[in-house]
């Protein structure tokens, strides 16, 4: 029970740190890292809370959901990194340009 509480709080912390990183950091690789940290925090909440019932086996449904979530996060990371590299080779930048809509 208590470990669930500790890790739920840690999950909250990861969500907060990740959001901060995503909003504040400019390098795209760091934004991708931040997105992964946010996801990990959400997964900790989603599957961690499944352990609330003392003694019983953990609820398998949120566990399966987290497994799905991890795979989706890996896929998204792969696409984001490839896009970052393509942007880099097209523009030499690894940051987003703010006023890129007027050519």
């Amino acid at each position: 029970m208590s470990s669930v509480l500790v890790f739920a709080l840690a999950g909250l912390g990861l969500i907060g740190l990740g959001l901060y990183g995503l909003l504040v950091q400019r390098h795209l690789l760091r934004k991708v890292l931040a997105f992964n940290v946010i996801s990990s925090g959400i997964f900790l909440l989603l599957a961690g809370l499944a352990r609330r019932a003392p003694g019983a086996e953990p609820d398998p449904v949120p566990q399966a959901m987290v497994l799905t979530g991890i795979v989706v996060a890996v896929a998204a990371t792969a696409l984001a990194l490839a896009m970052m590299l393509a942007l880099r080779s097209a523009t030499g930048r690894t940051r987003l340009e703010d006023h890129g809509d007027e050519d």
Binding site: L22, I38, I42, L46, L49, A80
Partner: peptide, 28 residues
């Protein structure tokens, strides 16, 4: 494949991922 297009797509991807993450938090 244009520079503008890649920049826009990258931003769109990050926005979209953040949006889905927020939604998933609600689902949890």
């Amino acid at each position: 494949g244009s520079a503008t297009g890649l920049n826009a797509a990258m931003r769109y991807l990050l926005v979209s991922l953040l949006g889905s993450a927020a939604y998933l938090l609600g689902v949890a």
